[in-house]
Design a protein around this nucleic acid. Structure first.
Length: 362
DNA sequence: GAAACGTGGCA
DNA sequence: TTGCCAAGTTT
């Protein structure tokens, strides 16, 4: 039973008209005017932006997208890079499995002639491409009539239909609502319109219903629930862990002792300072990567991951020129870039570099 | 289905 | 300062 006094076609038309006038200009996007003239976006750029945008804000992605496309304009260029290069450029973006999968995916696509699959099913087989990203690439790059359901769309659907069931249980229902709305004529623009609406109007905390092209049809708006939806299951509190980071420089040439982390798990595959285990109750056991006189740098590094808080003590030492580290390897001062480290490790560096034991080394 | 997996901005 | 949240995927 449909008691609404509006049709889906009307809703689609309102949303697309709003998009035509309000689409955000994004470096990876072909805007509605150009799209109407037949211009298609480059699937490589759509894929790259979509992977970067997974759980990540547009403002941050802009910088990384510019750098990646400058270094690697085509998928073959990215495929030809080393994984270490890709990890270094991804440093700071987070969720590093994305970078490993990105590189693996680039090699598969390059090997297959440099063409991305054009269907959702084909795309979803590639590493790092799940249901959302596959649908997004198919819709945006190929105008396939796929429902593109991300956090924005879930929020818009929850409000439009006043779905009070909390996430994540409500996901299938919200996806069904979204699927029922997909535009058969402009699927790519429709997908991007829905996401732009969620990002700029139907925002999480303070929805601007006064500017919303769908307000006329919004059930949450009608019942004053817009700000409350979507509801979410209660989150479990984050435990607090402690650890020790070790920053060693070599006397003479000023090389830094760094270690490549294991390929899977937290910060997997990234470059960083040798660290102790991170413990919840007891103090972490010391685990210096080389035998030396270590000094406490004083300031602690605090960092919050998705599922725990971390507080790191920072120890520094000036190592003798001939010393052999137990773990990691020395990186020449000229080759060292703090920007190639994940954020946690950048914070450790910022603390360590102030310590007189290593600050003056050149 | 639940848990792991980063980071920065904002209230 | 602390908690919430942002264009999800993998195991």
């Amino acid at each position: 039973m449909n008691t609404e006094h509006w049709t889906k076609a009307e809703l689609r038309a309102r949303l697309l008209a709003w998009y035509d006038a309000n689409a955000r200009a994004l470096p990876w996007r072909v805007g509605p005017a150009e799209r109407a003239r037949g211009v298609r976006p480059d699937p490589y750029r759509v894929w790259l932006s979509e992977v970067m945008l997974q759980q990540t804000t547009v403002a941050v992605v802009r910088r990384y997208f510019a750098r990646f496309t400058e270094l690697w304009p085509r998928v073959e260029d990215l495929a030809a890079a080393s994984e270490a290069q890709v990890m270094a450029e991804w440093a700071g973006l987070g969720y590093y499995a994305r970078a490993r999968n990105l590189h693996a995916c680039a090699r598969i696509v390059a090997e297959a002639g440099g063409r991305f699959p054009s269907t959702r099913e084909g795309l979803e087989k590639l590493p790092g491409i799940g249901p959302y990203t596959a649908a997004a690439i198919a819709a945006i790059a190929h105008d396939a009539p796929e429902a593109v359901v991300d956090g924005n769309v879930e929020r818009v659907m929850a409000r439009l239909h006043a779905v009070e069931e909390p996430l994540p249980k409500a996901k299938p229902r919200l996806a069904a609502h979204a699927a029922a709305l997909v535009s058969p004529h402009r699927p790519g623009d429709f997908a991007q319109a829905m996401m732009d609406l969620g990002a700029t109007v139907c925002t999480p905390r303070a929805p601007a219903c006064g500017r919303c092209p769908l307000a006329f049809a919004c059930a949450a708006r009608a019942s004053g629930l817009a700000r409350e939806l979507p509801r979410r299951a209660a989150k479990t509190p984050k435990p607090r862990r402690r650890g020790i980071a070790y920053v060693a420089r070599r006397a003479g040439d000023g090389a830094w002792l760094l270690e490549r982390r294991p390929p899977r798990g937290l910060l997997g595959g990234t470059l960083g300072w040798p660290v102790s285990e991170w413990t919840e109750g007891d103090a972490p056991a010391p685990a210096p990567p080389l035998a030396a006189e270590w000094s406490d740098a004083g300031a602690r590094v605090r960092h919050t991951f998705t599922h725990f808080h971390l507080e790191l003590e920072v120890f520094v030492t000036l190592a003798a020129p001939g010393v052999e580290p137990r773990r990691g390897s020395f990186v020449p001062a000229e080759a060292f870039r703090a920007e190639a480290l994940p954020s946690l490790m950048r914070k450790v560096h910022a603390v360590a570099r102030e310590h007189p034991a290593i600050a003056a080394v050149s």
